[in-house]
Amino acid sequence: MTSSEALVRVEGLRKLFPLNAGFLRAPTSFIHAVDGLDFAIAPGESLGLVGESGSGKTTTGKLLVRLLDITAGHVFMQFDGQVLDVARLQRSDSKTFRRKVQMIFQDPYESLNPRRTIFDTIAEPLQVQNIGNVLDQQERVAELLNLVGLSPPSTYLFRFPHELSGGQRQRVAIARALVINPAFVIADEPTSMLDVSIRTSIMQLMQNLGTQLGVTYLYITHDLAVARYMSTRLAVMYLGKIVEMGATEEVLQRPQHPYTKALLSAVPVPDPRWTRTPVEIKGGISKPIDPVPRCRFYDRCPLAAKVCEDNDHPPLEDKGSEHYVACYRV
């Protein structure tokens, strides 16, 4: 993918959260929640962002929709030939930005206002962006309810969230994200709060709608099986860094980074013929507070060597066929 055809291009994206800041007192340290990400997403593809809890997935997602201010770096998005720099959105650009970029949140019990009807919830992007009159909006919302499998729409339009199940609520949240025809949707673990039995149907729905409406996804999850199902490419995150990235099957079949290998060895294998050498990693994930300049994975890495300690975190390098790995010993 050349950079000009990318829908989203992220360069050196960073987010630091200050710690111990006080009134008139400068913060003494920072959490490096997202620490220099570089990736691009082509139109129509779906990039899966996987990693343990605390690796910075949600923070990345929130930076891309500007729910958080960007500490450093660039996020370029290109819609209909118009290039936006998300870190420095102009007033005139922000209108395009809000029409083209949407987010689906993790918890459908939290992401719907309990006092607003399903209609008001789904129509919100249309209402705040002044798209169509009330009748248009009503029809559009009904159409979306059909699309996400809540039909007939008239039985759902004027109900309140507490009258719906978790799965139905997440369908409503998906409808809200898609109602203005976004080009890029960030989905932050949209199935992790749902019953296992309905996860698959929600994932299927998102995939079908993605293809049908031409939506590009950034799909955040900690579940490799979900990532495998939902994404064409995969980026593995560890403490604010991408440690491995490539085509989904390539990364899962031929993982190269010790962390990815460890993650994969933790997943139960449905195929009995597939043997895998288990990888041991020590300890759990910590918080990236003022990290020392060495490989972020050093403390837990079974392959750790002097080179990993003496140098800063390894750069993400192409190991052939767009399979990127950040490791000195691969």
Partner: peptide, 13 residues
Amino acid sequence: RTYVEAAWVAGGS
């Protein structure tokens, strides 16, 4: 609440 974040992402002032 997340619905406030959702409203912001939707373009709400």
